[in-house]
Design a protein around this nucleic acid. Structure first.
Lengths: 207, 207
DNA sequence: GGAGTTTGTAACGCGTCGTGACAAACTACG
DNA sequence: CGTAGTTTGTCACGACGCGTTACAAACTCC
């Protein structure tokens, strides 16, 4: 029943808070008020406090919320605390950018394998991690229990890779390609579409 | 008043439809039903038809919606039809990935300039477009009337670049860095946070 | 000790969305 | 030509989520 408390809206907002909190932590802040979170997220301060107070008393009156502990609490609420292994497919410009940045690492996602097919890339390293040949994935998938796959491959091969991921037991696919992926209903596809988000922002600016 | 018809929810969903429609068009489809859009977006088919029928009768009964014309109609509704010039900052892996992909171009955003500071990158080309030195931006900004800036720079310089963009008249900043940007209230910052979106997806998978 | 800040929480009302239902328009196939 | 199947367009109802207002309690700072 506690799991049903999290409606779509609440979970979405908690994720958004998490984003701002993580950024704020990186900037060296240690405490933040609901008012400040509101300015960065656009969410009503009362709504923020209501969202949080539903799960416990995380703040200090007159002070605000401790960022580190709030991040931990939210991740507990979302039941996504701890680290999750993900696999990255495609070591082109985008793949390299993803692998060498900390965007995923900051949120508990550890890239545990990188795959590509280009002979000149396979065998090289990005940071500590070697780029492995894509053919190895099928054998590894079952063993390592990878649940999340990130697709940074060209659109024309995305569906084929997605099929392989599904066969390998991957349950969540983060799609950076522009292909429309067909997957079984128990697999979630999340497609990155910065341009659409930009159109959305542009609309409100023009209003 | 017609502009007030578009609430946050409607605009968000229209953008989402646009994403799927654009992908579907790339896959060679020419027509699509509200049922099919629903499967890819998770939005109720009735809700989709209601969203669209509020602005005109775009579909054909028994058939569905013509993808090309629906894309055009939605972009008219969002008043974001036509092409918009954007400037890209940072020509590292991420910047190159953005510049050489069609993610923005497919939605009417044309990258009109790319800036960087690294001497070995300035002067080179990505596709047709030369990488210019960042110092040139200040002079160009006023002339070209660039309203949208895409930040693909390291987090520790993101705020400084953002300040320059604001000074140059940019109104919408798409932030790929992990920095928390402070801008005047008339400027919109949209931060890309794939990891948070992934946490959100993961939560629903674990439910 | 008092002023100011911020959380936690309750109550009210509007708006949005899901649901169910159904007529009208279109296709396909005998 | 006609019938079955599909899909849009549209209405009405109900539930629920969210913004708003309000206020007590806890904490900081001077």
């Amino acid at each position: 029943m506690a799991s049903d408390r999290l409606t779509l809206g609440v979970a979405a907002r908690l994720s958004r808070y998490l984003q701002v909190l993580t950024q704020a932590r990186k900037m060296g802040k240690s405490s933040i008020s609901s008012q400040a979170i509101s300015e960065y997220t656009g969410v009503n301060p009362t709504q923020i406090r209501r969202d949080l107070s539903g799960f416990g008393k995380f703040g200090k009156r007159g002070v605000g919320y401790d960022i580190d502990s709030l991040i931990e609490q939210i991740r507990k609420i979302l039941r996504t605390a701890g680290t999750h292994n993900i696999a990255l497919f495609g070591a082109g410009n985008l793949g390299q950018a993803i692998a060498s940045s900390s965007v995923f690492g900051d949120h508990g996602f550890q890239i545990s394998a990188i795959f590509d097919v280009a002979p000149e890339r396979v065998g090289q390293r990005i940071g500590e991690l070697p780029i492995r040949h894509y053919d190895e994935f099928a054998g590894i998938a079952a063993d390592e229990g990878i649940m999340v796959g990130v697709l940074a491959v060209p659109g024309d091969v995305a569906q084929r890779v997605a099929d392989d991921l599904v066969a390998g037991g991957v349950k969540i696919i983060f799609n950076y390609s522009d292909a429309l992926l067909s997957v079984p209903s128990d697999v979630t596809v999340h497609t990155s579409s910065p341009a659409v988000e930009l159109l959305y922002a542009l609309y409100f600016y023009l209003s």
